[in-house]
C-alpha cells in the first residue's frame, strides 16, 4: 500500500525537478557545458575536445533538432552533422524529434531557454513554425534550416536554408524518364510512392517530376499514394497498386526505402523489378545503391545527406556576423544501374 501512495509523488517530484532544471539553466550557454547537461530528457550534448574556433575563445553552442532516424539517409545526415561539429570544435546539443512536430517545437523552446548561439533544425513538416521561430528571433538566436524548408511568408525567421533542391531532384528523375520514353507511342503508366504527406520532399519531388513529364502526354501517373518514406508502407501500397492496376510500366518512389519495399512487392507479384517495371528512386543510400547495382533500380537521384561541414561553416559565419546566402544548395548527382555498380565501393553511406 505504501508503494502505491508514494510512487505518484516520487514521479511528480521527478517531473518537477527535470522541468526546473530545464528552466533554471539559463546562463550556461558558453560556459564549457558544465551545467548544461541537465537539459531536457531527449537532448544529448556532445562535446569535442578540440579548441574553439570563434573569436572570443568561447565555444559556439549549436542546438540541432533532427527529424528522427526514419531512414539510412537520415542516419548518415545525423552522423555527418555530429562529426562536422566535433571537427569544427562546436558544442552540439542534439535532439531527436521522432518525426513529431510537437517534439521539435519543444526542443527549439528548450534551446531558446538554454540560450544556445545558433539553432538548426530539419522541419518535420512545412507549416506551423511561425510562433516558435518568432520566439527564437525575439531571443536573438539565429535559426538555420537544414535539408527541409518551411512554408512561411516571413523570411526573416531564419538566416539561411542549407539543403538539397527537392524540386530539382524531382525534375532530374523526370528528365531521365522523358529521355527513356522519348519514342514511346503508347501510354506509359506511372505509379508514384509519395513521402510523408505534407513534408517538403514529398511535395517538391512530386511537383518537379510532374513538371517535367508533362512534356510528353504519353507519360501519365495513374496512381499516387503516400508510403510514409518507409519500407513496410512502400511494400503494402505497391502491393495494392499491383492489384488495382494490371499495366504498371514505371514506379517513381520519393525515397530508396519505399522503393526497396516496393521491389519486394513486385517480386511477390511474379514480376522482375527493373525490367517489367522501371524503377526510379531518390536518395542513393547504401541499400538503394546495392539494389541499383543489381539492376533492380534503374535510376537513382542522389540526395546528399553529408551537409554537416556546410552547416558548420554557416554556423561559424553567422556567429561571426558575416553575411550568408539565403539558400545554400548541397552538391549531388544521379546514378543509372551501371554507374551505381561503379560507384558503390566508394560510397560513404
Amino acid at each position: 500500500m505504501n508503494v502505491r501512495k508514494i510512487l505518484p509523488i516520487v514521479l511528480l517530484a521527478a517531473c518537477l525537478i527535470v522541468t526546473a532544471c530545464g528552466g533554471g539553466n539559463q546562463p550556461s550557454s558558453g560556459g564549457g557545458g558544465g551545467g548544461s547537461d541537465s537539459n531536457g530528457p531527449s537532448t544529448q550534448s556532445t562535446e569535442s575536445g578540440g579548441g574553439s574556433s570563434s573569436g572570443a575563445g568561447k565555444k559556439i553552442v549549436l542546438g540541432f533538432s533532427q527529424v528522427g532516424a526514419e531512414s539510412g539517409w537520415r542516419t548518415a545526415n545525423t552522423e555527418s552533422i555530429k562529426e562536422a561539429a566535433a571537427a569544427a570544435g562546436i558544442e552540439l546539443k542534439f535532439s531527436d524529434a521522432q518525426q513529431k512536430q510537437e517534439n521539435q517545437i519543444k526542443a527549439i523552446r528548450s534551446f531558446i531557454q538554454q540560450k544556445v548561439d545558433v539553432i538548426a533544425f530539419s522541419p518535420v513538416v512545412e507549416s506551423g513554425w511561425e510562433t516558435v521561430l518568432r520566439e527564437a528571433k525575439e531571443a536573438g538566436i539565429p535559426v538555420i534550416l537544414t535539408d527541409r524548408a518551411i512554408d512561411s511568408d516571413d523570411e526573416s525567421l531564419y538566416v539561411t536554408f542549407i539543403g538539397s533542391d527537392f524540386v530539382e531532384e524531382g525534375r532530374r528523375a523526370g528528365r531521365w524518364l522523358l529521355e527513356q520514353f522519348k519514342d514511346a507511342t503508347e501510354p506509359v503508366n506511372i505509379v508514384e510512392l509519395q513521402g510523408t504527406t505534407g513534408s517538403a520532399p514529398a511535395i517538391d519531388r512530386k511537383a518537379g517530376f510532374e513538371e517535367v513529364i508533362r512534356e510528353n502526354p504519353n507519360l501519365r501517373i495513374i496512381a499516387s499514394q503516400t508510403g510514409d518514406f518507409t519500407r513496410a508502407k512502400g511494400k503494402e501500397v505497391m502491393q495494392s497498386f499491383l492489384q488495382a492496376h494490371k499495366d504498371i510500366d514505371v514506379l517513381y518512389a520519393h525515397n530508396d526505402d519505399m522503393g526497396l519495399g516496393a521491389i519486394q512487392a513486385i517480386e511477390a507479384a511474379g514480376l522482375v523489378p527493373g525490367k517489367d517495371i522501371i524503377i526510379i528512386t531518390v536518395d542513393a543510400i547504401r541499400d538503394g545503391m546495392q539494389a541499383a547495382a543489381e539492376g533492380k533500380i534503374n535510376f537513382i537521384v542522389e540526395c546528399n545527406p553529408l551537409l554537416g561541414p556546410q552547416l558548420m561553416e554557416a554556423v561559424i559565419a553567422v556567429v561571426e556576423g558575416r553575411e550568408v546566402p539565403k539558400r545554400i544548395v548541397t552538391e549531388e548527382g544521379a546514378f543509372t544501374s551501371e554507374e551505381a555498380k561503379a560507384a558503390l565501393p566508394y560510397r560513404k553511406y
Partner: peptide, 14 residues
C-alpha cells in the same frame, strides 16, 4: 512478422 515481411528492422517506424 512486421520486420521479417520487409527483411529489415526499423526501430523508428515499426
Amino acid at each position: 512478422i512486421t520486420s521479417s515481411n520487409v527483411s529489415s528492422a526499423d526501430g523508428n517506424n515499426a
